[in-house]
Design a protein around this nucleic acid. Structure first.
Length: 575
DNA sequence: GCCGTTTTCGGCCCGACTGTTTTCAGTCG
């Protein structure tokens, strides 16, 4: 199997970690981290670019050296340099960096002076009180290490789904807004950028009474532990395990602070670089020329000060938005109000919780012009998929309801299983009767990458397949996506005039953002669909639109910003 | 290791908090 971008990024991260422990030049370390980020966010498979002989050094943050290393990893599956560093520094030391409070310097000293080379070794040393004997370490540091190792026993720090963080964020914001002397409150960080998961919540407050705000914040009833507190910032862990960071600045710095705390890190570093070019200093308090603050109150002011148009938070990933902001050529991103209906929803005829009428009524109440009822087909047995006879009866019921209702179109549709061989789980005559055919893979996840890709492309060959649902098959926090070549799926959809779905379920958000952007560039239309399994879930459209903005989507890129008549015309492919 | 409306060499973002220090290094975001 060809080497994936994520694997290349992981190797670069590991090189950066080990170099940092070796006290290598910190800018050299940063170069590896920047490259890892570029590689991870790239909507093209590097192994393909290498195969085509394309010049990788044109990618941002990739020079001649790293381009060569990427080619080496693609060819051999590994990087000689990493093995060589591994002879000098145990590879296990990299995982120690994940322990909060332990950075490269401390890892190096733990290794050199106590012979520690793994998490297990660190745990032993801390328990035997050997850590506190090192200069610069003390009893409190040792205890903090023990706490941290107990809190995250195995490896990766877990991230929280955006949708789970959202009610917590809303409540904390409301609580802080009630506080006297608080002029503004906002959630910044990856939450504001609408990443699918968040590592923590970053709250920003405008107030002249930092200490009071901090005191109120750390005293909140949901706070389980105060990790740090000062007069302008604090960090806490909530009972739910979610970490929340608070920062208080004066109103005149609020915009600059918002830019800074919204990130991403790569985006703000790029901004500061622009500021330096203009002989400005940019920090969380403003843009300064000498001692004079020239911007800071609003985000717009700050962007203007470095010569840029305002950049929407969802775009702030240093994936080309800076260049377009300079040219004032950023896309006008899709908004919830642009959407006219929902093209993927289930009823209790298959695995939904609510009945057909209830779903239709709820969609009408949301102001939808149309709702596609897409119950499962026979092969999806655990989802109570309908066989042909049951499906025909179901479609007849939908048709009757549609005739009765005014003000909303209820579409006769189905979420048709893509079978192992790429054929569709309904006969052609029945597919031809449907208003809309949504199709998806729900089985045979273990196929090889090429076989899985061929299977889906074969399904898309069917002229009645309109929308490929949750194309990557990922379940956030549960499983990676299918082994599937999304670059070929996007290209295949473009060739066939087939649409791809952005599934709004909180654990899916599928297609992933970089592929939404790739699909947009290829001219593929995206259906933003809730895949609702209850009336309440029809509201997930809002979260889906937020995520769609991360994929740079504009209203015209989205299928369901159109009237049903326009969609029907668009879907008549190849005829 | 990357990169160029200062530069192909010499820069590379910036500040708060903690713990263990008597003035600051390390870590984090």
């Amino acid at each position: 199997m060809p080497v994936q971008n994520a694997e290349i990024a992981r190797i670069f991260e590991q090189v950066a970690d080990l170099l940092e422990i070796q006290q290598a030049n910190r800018f050299r370390v940063r170069a590896y981290r920047t490259a890892a980020q570029t590689v991870r966010g790239l909507p093209r498979a590097l192994h393909e670019l290498v195969a085509r002989g394309e010049d990788l050094s044109r990618l941002p943050g990739i020079g001649e050296d790293l381009a060569g290393k990427i080619a080496e990893i693609v060819r051999t599956g590994k990087l000689r340099q990493l093995a060589e560093i591994g002879h000098q520094v145990p590879r296990g030391l990299a995982e120690l960096l994940a322990v909060p409070g332990i950075g490269p310097q401390r890892v190096r000293r733990l290794h050199e002076e106590l012979g520690i080379r793994s998490r297990a070794g660190l745990l032993r040393a801390a328990r035997q009180h050997r850590v506190r004997t090192l200069p610069g370490f003390g009893a409190r540091t040792e205890q903090a290490i023990l706490d941290a190792l107990a809190a995250q026993p195995a490896g990766a720090a877990k991230r929280t789904l955006w949708s789970e963080a959202e009610p917590v964020a809303r409540q904390l914001v409301a609580d802080l807004r009630r506080l006297p002397g608080v002029e503004a409150v906002e959630v910044a960080g990856s939450f504001r950028r609408r990443r699918e998961t968040v590592g923590d919540l970053d709250l920003l407050v405008a107030s002249r009474h930092g200490a009071t705000v901090v005191a109120h914040f750390v005293g909140h009833e949901d706070v389980a532990r105060v990790l740090a507190r000062g007069t302008t910032k604090a960090s806490v862990r909530l009972r739910s395990g979610l970490q929340v960071d608070l920062r208080v600045v004066e109103r005149a710095a609020y915009g600059a602070a918002l830019v800074y705390f919204t990130g991403s890190k790569a985006h703000t570093i790029a901004l500061r670089r622009l500021a330096v070019q203009r002989r400005l200093k940019l920090n969380e308090y403003g843009a300064f020329r000498g001692a004079r603050r020239v911007a800071g109150r609003t985000e717009r002011d700050v962007y203007r000060s470095v010569g840029l148009h305002f950049v929407e938070p969802e775009l702030r990933e240093n994936r080309g938005e800076i260049e377009l902001a300079r040219k004032r050529a950023l896309p006008r991103l899709v908004q919830l109000g642009d959407l006219r209906g929902d093209l993927h929803a289930h009823t209790d005829a298959s695995d939904g919780a609510d009945g057909l009428q209830a779903m239709a009524a709820a969609a009408k109440k949301l102001g939808h012009e149309y709702l596609a009822i897409t119950d499962h087909t026979r092969a999806a047995r655990i989802a109570h998929g309908l066989d042909v006879r049951a499906m025909r009866r179901h479609l007849a019921r939908i048709e009757r309801l549609d005739r009765q209702l005014r003000g909303i179109r209820i579409l006769r549709s189905a979420e048709v299983d893509i079978l192992a061989d790429g054929s569709l789980d309904l006969p052609d005559d029945l597919l031809a009767e449907l208003d809309l055919v949504v199709a998806a893979v729900h089985s045979d996840f273990r196929k090889s990458r090429s076989a899985q890709t061929e299977r889906i492309l074969r399904a898309m060959d069917h002229p009645r397949l309109h929308v490929l649902a949750h194309p990557s098959g990922r379940l956030l926090g549960e499983r990676e996506g299918l082994a599937v070549d999304l670059e070929r799926i996007v290209a295949g959809a473009a060739e066939r005039g087939c649409c791809l779905e952005l599934n709004c379920q909180p654990t899916r958000l599928d297609l992933p953002d970089v592929w939404l952007q790739a699909a947009k560039e290829a001219g593929v239309k995206i259906a933003i669909s809730t895949d609702a399994h209850s009336t309440a879930q029809l509201a997930l459209l809002a979260a889906g639109v937020g995520y769609a903005r991360r994929g740079w989507l504009q209203a015209e890129d989205v299928l369901n910003t159109r009237s049903w008549a326009d969609i029907a015309r668009l879907l008549r492919r190849g005829s």
